[in-house]
């Protein structure tokens, strides 16, 4: 299977984004043109402040653009209103955040059920926990879980709705090497077994080795796109 025959899931055209941060104006993206293909595992690489999180948020329908266009399966997300974006996120997108963003007052299982309750064709919450290897931790609250476990619950929550795309923002950013690898393995397994288009953003270059394609961002622009010919397993990563 070559890249040219695969469906394009995301396509961005001259994407720019400027936002206000307190009293400072931030130009996060300045003309990004990018395509993501179905089933692909893409790593977006860049230093802190390179605009990669902004890009991911726009792809996920969390943020709006200042100019340019974003297409999801040829649907123009920039032309969608709030309600359509909500529906898009609800039905198509799974998110994993650097700081997990679990609801602290709900147990692991309840955090997943919070999402499956509103999804169209969800997995069973316990099955989702099984995929990330945390079935036995189902009734623990976030505060009772380690960082790695919390992130795996967050991954289980993201995939439990059976999303078309899985967007991960620095999923290992707050984790040590060992737990980071466990988490990346979980993400890679989902990409492999469920065929979910996966985008992972990181500032950690070694993670790029497990991707199909590596997109490097710096200062709000794409600086390079590399196809990784020697994909390795998460367990073989070193950083």
């Amino acid at each position: 299977m070559t890249a040219s025959t695969q469906t394009t899931v995301f396509r961005t055209v001259d994407l720019t984004k400027t936002y206000q941060m307190g009293e400072v104006q931030v130009r996060a993206l300045r003309g990004v043109n990018l395509e993501l293909l179905e089933g692909e595992f893409v790593v977006l690489l860049g230093a802190s402040g390179s605009g990669k999180s902004t890009l991911l948020n726009i792809l996920g329908g969390l943020d709006t653009t200042t100019s340019g266009q974003v297409f999801y399966l040829e649907k123009d997300l920039t032309a969608s209103d709030e309600a359509e974006l909500t529906r898009y996120r609800r039905d198509h997108v799974g998110f994993v955040f650097q700081f997990y963003n679990l609801i602290p007052s709900l147990t692991a299982k309840e955090n997943i059920e919070l999402i499956t309750e509103i999804a169209v064709s969800p997995l069973d919450a316990m099955d989702a926990l099984e995929i990330v290897g945390l079935r036995e931790r189902a009734n623990h609250f976030p505060a009772q879980l380690s960082g790695g476990e919390q992130q795996r619950v967050a991954i289980a929550r993201a995939i439990a709705k059976n999303p078309k795309v899985l967007l991960c923002d620095e999923p290992t950013g707050a984790l040590d090497v060992h737990t980071g690898i466990v988490v990346l393995e979980a993400i890679a397994r989902i990409n492999r077994e469920l065929g979910t288009t996966t985008a992972v953003i990181t500032h950690n270059a070694s993670i790029a080795n497990m991707a199909d394609r590596v997109v490097a961002l710096s200062d709000g622009q794409i600086s390079s796109v590399d196809i990784n010919t020697s994909k390795v397993n998460a367990g073989e990563l070193q950083w």
Partner: peptide, 16 residues
């Protein structure tokens, strides 16, 4: 704030 963000990211509507 971040819980709200997560809820919205996963498709909970503003109304909900």
């Amino acid at each position: 704030r971040e819980q709200i963000a997560a809820l919205k990211a996963f498709g909970y509507s503003n109304f909900e």
